[in-house]
Design a protein around this nucleic acid. Sequence first.
DNA 1: TTATTATTTGAATAATTGTTCAAATACGAT
DNA 2: ATCGTATTTGAACAATTATTCAAATAATAA
Lengths: 101, 101
Amino acid sequence: MSEYRQIKKELKNKKELIACAQQLGVVGDATRLKICYLLCCHPELNVSDMAEILDTSVSVVSHSVKKLLDLKLVERRKEAQTVYYSLINNDFTNKLKEFIT
Amino acid sequence: MSEYRQIKKELKNKKELIACAQQLGVVGDATRLKICYLLCCHPELNVSDMAEILDTSVSVVSHSVKKLLDLKLVERRKEAQTVYYSLINNDFTNKLKEFIT
DNA sequence: TTATTATTTGAATAATTGTTCAAATACGAT
DNA sequence: ATCGTATTTGAACAATTATTCAAATAATAA
């Protein structure tokens, strides 16, 4: 029985797989992936402009970027009233670019 | 006004971005990503074995692989009563491997 | 100060997705 | 034919996630 003891154990310790699933889940949404795509071409964009480009409300963009922010996929820079978002350059976003460009 | 006419248009035609979001959404789930991970090491596995390895029911595995199947991420080979699943070798799964290995 | 613009927040609700379980199917063996 | 094993299916329900909207915050200008 259980010829799978080893791989079961291996999988149990793979916390990064779960984290990866979570990140993939966040970018696995049309609005959020479009935002990532936009931020691949444009170094930074503010919420209103993204909303205009994506033909949606500032509220959905704001909620969307918040999720990307929470998982450290984007970062914000505030200038007066407007806040600019840009893709963070890390392992995950670099691999992500392979998918969307 | 609209300095974004071009990118808006470009985005509208990007059907593949939507498709990609859908695929990423499917692998952006712990169970399904684990299945993909398993199929990276093991050339093929059947439903019962995956259920044992993942400590879950055959029903959740069956439902899960169905979603992977629908998006052409895995394929099935039936041998008597048991059906073996394997990762399809395509653009998406190759990029996916970068994330999980 | 009030007004304006940009963004965030939270809560209500809508919609989607996951889980469970029992029944159905498929196949080989008896 | 019936039985046992493997898998799929669908429906009910649970849980998560998305969307909407109005109110709140922040910053600047008048």
